[in-house]
Amino acid sequence: MTGPLLSVRDLRVAFPTRQGIFEAVRGVSFDLGRERLGVVGESGSGKSMTGRAILGLVRPPGHVTAERLDLDGQPILNLPERQMRRIRGRRISMVMQDPKFSLNPVMTIGDQIIEAYRLHAGGGRDAARQKALDMLEAVQIRDPERVMTTYPHEVSGGMGQRIMIAMMLAPDPEILIADEPTSALDVSVRNEVLNIMDALVKDRGMGLIFISHDLNLVAQFCDRVLIMYAGRIVETLAARDLHHARHPYTQGLLNSLPRLDAPVDRLPVLQRQDNWRDGDPLSESLTTDFPGGL
Protein backbone atom coordinates (compact mmCIF):
# COMPACT_ATOMS: atom_id res chain seq x y z
CA MET A 1 0.00 0.00 0.00
CA THR A 2 1.35 3.40 -0.89
CA GLY A 3 -1.24 6.04 0.01
CA PRO A 4 -1.68 7.41 3.51
CA LEU A 5 -4.01 5.60 5.90
CA LEU A 6 -5.99 8.70 6.58
CA SER A 7 -6.13 11.85 4.55
CA VAL A 8 -7.76 14.98 5.93
CA ARG A 9 -8.16 18.25 4.03
CA ASP A 10 -9.80 21.43 5.27
CA LEU A 11 -11.70 19.79 8.13
CA ARG A 12 -14.10 22.14 9.88
CA VAL A 13 -16.35 21.64 12.90
CA ALA A 14 -18.91 24.35 13.59
CA PHE A 15 -21.40 24.87 16.40
CA PRO A 16 -24.23 27.37 16.21
CA THR A 17 -24.37 29.61 19.29
CA ARG A 18 -26.39 32.63 20.27
CA GLN A 19 -23.49 34.81 19.14
CA GLY A 20 -23.41 33.17 15.72
CA ILE A 21 -21.50 30.22 14.32
CA PHE A 22 -18.54 29.10 16.44
CA GLU A 23 -15.90 27.12 14.58
CA ALA A 24 -14.04 24.79 16.94
CA VAL A 25 -11.92 23.37 14.12
CA ARG A 26 -11.09 25.73 11.25
CA GLY A 27 -9.59 24.05 8.23
CA VAL A 28 -7.32 21.28 9.50
CA SER A 29 -5.37 19.29 6.90
CA PHE A 30 -2.97 16.39 7.41
CA ASP A 31 -2.12 12.88 6.26
CA LEU A 32 -1.56 9.96 8.59
CA GLY A 33 0.69 7.06 7.64
CA ARG A 34 1.75 4.09 9.73
CA GLU A 35 3.38 6.35 12.25
CA ARG A 36 2.93 8.10 15.57
CA LEU A 37 1.43 11.50 14.90
CA GLY A 38 1.20 13.88 17.85
CA VAL A 39 -1.44 16.60 18.08
CA VAL A 40 -0.59 19.27 20.66
CA GLY A 41 -2.36 22.38 21.85
CA GLU A 42 -3.99 24.04 24.83
CA SER A 43 -7.49 23.24 25.98
CA GLY A 44 -9.95 24.66 23.50
CA SER A 45 -7.53 24.48 20.59
CA GLY A 46 -9.71 21.91 18.85
CA LYS A 47 -7.41 18.92 19.14
CA SER A 48 -9.94 16.58 20.74
CA MET A 49 -12.64 17.84 18.40
CA THR A 50 -10.46 16.90 15.42
CA GLY A 51 -10.23 13.33 16.74
CA ARG A 52 -13.96 13.18 17.36
CA ALA A 53 -14.78 14.56 13.93
CA ILE A 54 -12.72 11.84 12.23
CA LEU A 55 -14.72 9.21 14.09
CA GLY A 56 -18.04 10.91 13.38
CA LEU A 57 -18.61 11.54 17.07
CA VAL A 58 -19.61 15.20 16.78
CA ARG A 59 -23.25 15.36 17.84
CA PRO A 60 -25.75 17.77 16.34
CA PRO A 61 -26.02 20.76 16.39
CA GLY A 62 -22.28 20.43 15.74
CA HIS A 63 -21.58 20.27 12.03
CA VAL A 64 -18.57 18.70 10.32
CA THR A 65 -17.45 19.64 6.82
CA ALA A 66 -14.29 18.79 4.93
CA GLU A 67 -12.91 18.92 1.45
CA ARG A 68 -11.65 15.40 2.01
CA LEU A 69 -11.79 12.88 4.83
CA ASP A 70 -10.57 9.58 3.41
CA LEU A 71 -9.75 6.31 5.11
CA ASP A 72 -7.63 4.18 2.73
CA GLY A 73 -8.99 6.23 -0.15
CA GLN A 74 -12.64 5.76 0.87
CA PRO A 75 -14.52 8.88 1.92
CA ILE A 76 -15.84 8.54 5.50
CA LEU A 77 -17.14 12.08 6.00
CA ASN A 78 -20.64 12.21 7.46
CA LEU A 79 -21.43 8.60 6.65
CA PRO A 80 -24.80 7.35 7.84
CA GLU A 81 -24.61 6.08 11.40
CA ARG A 82 -25.01 2.44 10.31
CA GLN A 83 -21.97 2.54 8.07
CA MET A 84 -19.96 4.63 10.51
CA ARG A 85 -20.48 1.96 13.14
CA ARG A 86 -18.74 -0.56 10.89
CA ILE A 87 -15.68 1.67 10.81
CA ARG A 88 -15.72 2.94 14.36
CA GLY A 89 -14.00 0.46 16.64
CA ARG A 90 -13.18 -1.96 13.85
CA ARG A 91 -10.95 0.18 11.65
CA ILE A 92 -10.50 3.34 13.72
CA SER A 93 -10.51 3.13 17.51
CA MET A 94 -10.31 5.77 20.17
CA VAL A 95 -8.90 5.67 23.68
CA MET A 96 -10.27 8.42 25.89
CA GLN A 97 -8.58 10.30 28.66
CA ASP A 98 -10.10 8.84 31.78
CA PRO A 99 -10.76 5.10 32.13
CA LYS A 100 -13.11 5.85 35.03
CA PHE A 101 -15.66 7.35 32.67
CA SER A 102 -15.11 5.08 29.69
CA LEU A 103 -15.71 1.67 31.24
CA ASN A 104 -19.14 0.36 32.20
CA PRO A 105 -19.15 0.30 36.02
CA VAL A 106 -21.65 -2.56 36.37
CA MET A 107 -20.09 -5.04 33.95
CA THR A 108 -16.96 -7.13 34.52
CA ILE A 109 -13.86 -6.22 32.55
CA GLY A 110 -13.91 -9.57 30.77
CA ASP A 111 -17.53 -9.24 29.65
CA GLN A 112 -16.85 -5.74 28.31
CA ILE A 113 -13.88 -6.79 26.21
CA ILE A 114 -15.71 -9.88 24.94
CA GLU A 115 -18.77 -7.83 24.03
CA ALA A 116 -16.69 -5.26 22.16
CA TYR A 117 -14.78 -7.94 20.30
CA ARG A 118 -17.82 -9.98 19.28
CA LEU A 119 -19.64 -6.89 18.11
CA HIS A 120 -16.85 -6.15 15.66
CA ALA A 121 -15.38 -9.50 14.78
CA GLY A 122 -18.25 -11.86 15.51
CA GLY A 123 -17.29 -15.39 16.44
CA GLY A 124 -18.13 -17.56 19.40
CA ARG A 125 -17.89 -16.71 23.07
CA ASP A 126 -14.97 -19.03 23.70
CA ALA A 127 -12.89 -17.60 20.89
CA ALA A 128 -13.69 -14.08 22.06
CA ARG A 129 -12.75 -15.01 25.61
CA GLN A 130 -9.40 -16.33 24.42
CA LYS A 131 -8.85 -13.17 22.40
CA ALA A 132 -9.67 -11.03 25.46
CA LEU A 133 -7.13 -12.94 27.53
CA ASP A 134 -4.53 -12.51 24.80
CA MET A 135 -5.19 -8.77 24.58
CA LEU A 136 -4.90 -8.31 28.33
CA GLU A 137 -1.59 -10.14 28.18
CA ALA A 138 -0.49 -7.97 25.27
CA VAL A 139 -0.97 -4.86 27.43
CA GLN A 140 1.09 -6.50 30.15
CA ILE A 141 -1.58 -7.22 32.69
CA ARG A 142 -0.42 -9.93 35.04
CA ASP A 143 -2.95 -12.58 35.91
CA PRO A 144 -5.49 -11.74 33.17
CA GLU A 145 -7.82 -14.54 34.34
CA ARG A 146 -8.41 -12.71 37.59
CA VAL A 147 -8.69 -9.27 35.99
CA MET A 148 -11.39 -10.60 33.62
CA THR A 149 -13.70 -11.18 36.58
CA THR A 150 -13.16 -7.79 38.25
CA TYR A 151 -15.24 -4.65 37.96
CA PRO A 152 -13.76 -1.31 36.85
CA HIS A 153 -13.76 0.17 40.37
CA GLU A 154 -11.52 -2.66 41.53
CA VAL A 155 -8.64 -1.78 39.22
CA SER A 156 -6.24 1.15 39.39
CA GLY A 157 -6.15 4.04 36.91
CA GLY A 158 -3.15 2.71 35.02
CA MET A 159 -4.68 -0.72 34.78
CA GLY A 160 -8.00 0.75 33.64
CA GLN A 161 -6.22 2.63 30.87
CA ARG A 162 -4.41 -0.52 29.76
CA ILE A 163 -7.75 -2.37 29.77
CA MET A 164 -9.23 0.36 27.57
CA ILE A 165 -6.33 -0.04 25.16
CA ALA A 166 -6.79 -3.82 25.18
CA MET A 167 -10.47 -3.40 24.38
CA MET A 168 -9.79 -0.94 21.56
CA LEU A 169 -7.10 -3.13 20.04
CA ALA A 170 -9.00 -6.42 20.12
CA PRO A 171 -10.58 -5.88 16.64
CA ASP A 172 -7.13 -4.98 15.18
CA PRO A 173 -7.90 -1.41 14.05
CA GLU A 174 -5.80 0.31 11.41
CA ILE A 175 -5.84 3.61 13.26
CA LEU A 176 -5.89 4.34 16.97
CA ILE A 177 -6.83 7.81 18.14
CA ALA A 178 -5.56 8.28 21.69
CA ASP A 179 -7.00 11.39 23.38
CA GLU A 180 -4.76 12.27 26.31
CA PRO A 181 -4.33 8.58 27.14
CA THR A 182 -1.74 9.16 29.82
CA SER A 183 -2.68 12.47 31.46
CA ALA A 184 -4.49 10.77 34.33
CA LEU A 185 -1.62 8.38 34.99
CA ASP A 186 1.51 8.49 37.14
CA VAL A 187 4.81 8.82 35.33
CA SER A 188 5.95 5.23 35.88
CA VAL A 189 2.65 3.79 34.61
CA ARG A 190 2.62 6.34 31.80
CA ASN A 191 5.84 5.01 30.33
CA GLU A 192 4.49 1.45 30.40
CA VAL A 193 1.34 2.48 28.52
CA LEU A 194 3.44 4.36 25.97
CA ASN A 195 5.69 1.33 25.46
CA ILE A 196 2.62 -0.76 24.71
CA MET A 197 1.31 1.69 22.11
CA ASP A 198 4.78 2.06 20.63
CA ALA A 199 5.08 -1.71 20.16
CA LEU A 200 1.67 -1.83 18.50
CA VAL A 201 2.61 0.80 15.94
CA LYS A 202 5.84 -1.02 15.14
CA ASP A 203 4.53 -4.60 15.15
CA ARG A 204 1.14 -4.15 13.54
CA GLY A 205 1.82 -1.16 11.34
CA MET A 206 -0.97 0.76 13.01
CA GLY A 207 -1.39 4.51 12.57
CA LEU A 208 -1.54 6.39 15.87
CA ILE A 209 -2.94 9.85 16.46
CA PHE A 210 -1.70 10.89 19.88
CA ILE A 211 -3.56 13.91 21.26
CA SER A 212 -1.81 15.55 24.20
CA HIS A 213 -1.07 18.84 25.88
CA ASP A 214 2.37 17.61 26.97
CA LEU A 215 4.85 18.94 24.41
CA ASN A 216 7.91 17.24 25.78
CA LEU A 217 6.23 13.88 25.94
CA VAL A 218 5.04 14.21 22.35
CA ALA A 219 8.49 15.27 21.21
CA GLN A 220 9.97 12.14 22.72
CA PHE A 221 7.26 9.69 21.76
CA CYS A 222 5.93 10.69 18.35
CA ASP A 223 7.40 10.91 14.87
CA ARG A 224 5.59 14.03 13.69
CA VAL A 225 3.79 16.76 15.59
CA LEU A 226 0.92 19.05 14.62
CA ILE A 227 0.60 22.13 16.80
CA MET A 228 -2.91 23.51 17.05
CA TYR A 229 -4.02 26.95 18.10
CA ALA A 230 -7.60 28.24 18.01
CA GLY A 231 -8.84 25.43 15.76
CA ARG A 232 -6.04 25.55 13.24
CA ILE A 233 -2.71 23.83 12.73
CA VAL A 234 -0.12 26.57 13.14
CA GLU A 235 2.93 24.39 12.66
CA THR A 236 3.79 20.87 11.51
CA LEU A 237 7.21 19.49 12.20
CA ALA A 238 9.20 16.34 12.84
CA ALA A 239 9.17 15.53 16.52
CA ARG A 240 12.93 15.61 16.84
CA ASP A 241 12.89 19.21 15.58
CA LEU A 242 10.31 20.38 18.10
CA HIS A 243 12.90 22.23 20.11
CA HIS A 244 13.83 24.16 16.98
CA ALA A 245 10.20 25.17 16.42
CA ARG A 246 9.83 28.42 14.53
CA HIS A 247 6.29 29.45 15.38
CA PRO A 248 6.21 31.84 18.37
CA TYR A 249 3.26 29.92 19.85
CA THR A 250 5.18 26.64 19.87
CA GLN A 251 8.22 28.36 21.29
CA GLY A 252 6.10 30.07 23.94
CA LEU A 253 4.53 26.80 25.02
CA LEU A 254 7.92 25.13 25.28
CA ASN A 255 9.40 27.97 27.29
CA SER A 256 6.55 28.15 29.77
CA LEU A 257 7.32 24.66 31.07
CA PRO A 258 9.46 24.48 34.19
CA ARG A 259 12.38 22.14 33.60
CA LEU A 260 14.35 19.98 35.97
CA ASP A 261 17.62 20.53 34.13
CA ALA A 262 17.34 24.27 33.58
CA PRO A 263 16.31 26.29 36.64
CA VAL A 264 14.91 29.78 36.04
CA ASP A 265 13.78 32.47 38.46
CA ARG A 266 10.63 33.33 36.57
CA LEU A 267 8.78 31.30 34.00
CA PRO A 268 8.30 33.11 30.68
CA VAL A 269 4.61 33.67 30.07
CA LEU A 270 3.02 33.15 26.70
CA GLN A 271 2.14 36.48 25.03
CA ARG A 272 -0.70 35.70 22.67
CA GLN A 273 -0.88 37.52 19.38
CA ASP A 274 -3.94 38.01 17.25
CA ASN A 275 -2.23 37.04 14.04
CA TRP A 276 -1.77 33.48 15.32
CA ARG A 277 -5.46 32.92 14.79
CA ASP A 278 -5.42 33.62 11.08
CA GLY A 279 -1.80 34.02 10.00
CA ASP A 280 -0.16 31.61 7.60
CA PRO A 281 0.60 28.26 9.16
CA LEU A 282 4.19 27.08 9.13
CA SER A 283 4.19 23.61 7.63
CA GLU A 284 6.94 21.65 6.06
CA SER A 285 4.43 19.46 4.27
CA LEU A 286 1.01 18.04 4.87
CA THR A 287 1.84 14.63 3.54
CA THR A 288 3.44 12.01 5.67
CA ASP A 289 6.94 10.64 5.24
CA PHE A 290 5.79 7.26 6.48
CA PRO A 291 2.88 6.08 4.32
CA GLY A 292 4.24 2.54 4.27
CA GLY A 293 5.39 2.24 7.85
CA LEU A 294 8.28 3.24 10.06
Binding site: E42, D186, V187, H213, L253, S256, P258
Partner: peptide, 28 residues
Amino acid sequence: DVSVQAEILNLLADLRAEHKLTYVMVSH
Protein backbone atom coordinates in the same frame (compact mmCIF):
# COMPACT_ATOMS: atom_id res chain seq x y z
CA ASP B 1 -2.66 24.34 30.56
CA VAL B 2 1.11 24.76 30.65
CA SER B 3 0.91 28.39 29.55
CA VAL B 4 -1.58 29.16 32.33
CA GLN B 5 0.44 27.06 34.76
CA ALA B 6 3.41 29.38 34.18
CA GLU B 7 1.24 32.42 35.03
CA ILE B 8 -0.10 30.86 38.24
CA LEU B 9 3.34 29.66 39.37
CA ASN B 10 4.74 33.16 38.79
CA LEU B 11 1.82 34.62 40.73
CA LEU B 12 2.42 32.25 43.65
CA ALA B 13 6.13 33.11 43.65
CA ASP B 14 5.33 36.87 43.66
CA LEU B 15 2.79 36.52 46.45
CA ARG B 16 5.24 34.55 48.55
CA ALA B 17 7.87 37.26 48.24
CA GLU B 18 5.36 40.06 48.80
CA HIS B 19 3.48 38.64 51.79
CA LYS B 20 6.36 36.56 53.22
CA LEU B 21 4.29 33.40 52.98
CA THR B 22 5.28 29.83 53.78
CA TYR B 23 4.17 27.22 51.24
CA VAL B 24 3.56 23.51 51.50
CA MET B 25 2.94 22.37 47.95
CA VAL B 26 1.76 18.98 46.78
CA SER B 27 2.44 18.01 43.18
CA HIS B 28 3.11 14.98 41.06
